[in-house]
């Protein structure tokens, strides 16, 4: 465990040094992420100029939900996105050999190699959105609620990570399919919606089968209405299930991998 922590710290240090070398790139990508976050917030603002409630959620409750969803996504972008995105490209090109030759867990090595400080910087903006919404709602969550919120965000991160690994692992089977990681972005759009808005088949598909809605709704509910064990259990269960599924799919895919390099 300590060895993996040391490896991760070395990778993180390298990523930060690299970012400092390309400062304009860092600034530009931080702006890109900030703009896209603003797009989502602006959309909420505009809809609420026309209505008072969306599925029973007021504007600031919705802002807290969207902020939570963006927070999980920023962490994913900051800690894993570049590595997992490159993983798909490396599988297609055959450069994935590089990771097979490394003395460590292949999935760990392949998915934690690069850190994106621009994504992490924007996670503070997402936290600011959540704090602002909570302030406007007059909420005063206890320290325990905040710890539970953080743990639920962690579970959400595990679910997002697993979904992205599964999407990208499809490259082991369909090497010609580019842009499979786009599937992940399409699915995360659902995480910005309140659970109460889903009915019938949509509820079954996006709340229970694909836990994209639970990922954001469970932590947001904890801040809004206090700890609800049913939400926490659903989230922990989904995180364990999806992480196991990611491990299985990745290792099944790995068996099919045949180096494309000469």
């Amino acid at each position: 465990m300590t060895r993996y922590l040391q490896i991760w710290l070395a990778s993180a240090r390298y990523s930060i040094v690299r970012t400092m070398m390309f400062r304009f790139d860092f600034f530009l990508w931080a702006m890109v992420e900030l703009f896209w976050m603003s797009v989502n917030l602006l959309m909420i603002g505009v809809i609420y100029t026309q209505t008072k409630s969306i599925a029973g959620w007021s504007m600031y409750e919705m802002l807290l939900l969207v902020g939570t969803s963006l927070l999980v996504q920023r962490f994913l972008m900051g800690f894993f996105w570049s590595s997992i995105f490159e993983m798909g490209r490396n599988i297609r090109s055959g450069y994935f050999d590089f990771f097979l030759a490394q003395p460590g867990n292949i999935l760990f090595m392949a998915t934690t190699r690069k850190l994106d400080p621009d994504g992490l910087v924007n996670s503070f903006v997402a936290m600011g959105v959540v704090a602002y919404a909570a302030h406007k709602l007059g909420l005063h969550p206890s320290a325990l609620d905040l710890v539970l919120y953080a743990l639920m965000i962690l579970c959400g991160l595990v679910i997002h990570y697993s979904m992205l690994v599964i999407s990208v692992s499809l490259a082991f089977w369909i090497t010609s399919a580019q842009g499979v990681e786009g599937i992940y972005f399409t699915l995360t759009e659902f995480s910005r919606l309140p659970r109460e808005a889903f009915r019938g088949l949509a509820s079954l598909a996006f709340v229970w089968l694909l836990p994209v809605v639970v990922v954001s709704n469970a932590p947001a509910q904890t801040i809004l209405h206090g700890f609800q064990p049913i939400w926490a259990l659903a989230l922990v269960g989904a995180a364990a299930l999806w992480f196991s599924a990611a491990l299985v799919v990745f290792h099944l895919g790995l068996r099919r991998y045949n180096s494309a390099s000469s």
Binding site: I47, T51, I54, S176, Q178, T186, P194, A197
Partner: peptide
């Protein structure tokens, strides 16, 4: 096939629109 998959997933985007605006 890439375009067909993209087209298929854009229908998911339409589902998000349907749920969000339906609730609004």
């Amino acid at each position: 096939w890439n375009f067909a998959v993209r087209g298929f997933f854009s229908m998911f985007h339409l589902t998000v629109v349907f749920i969000l605006w339906g609730a609004a």
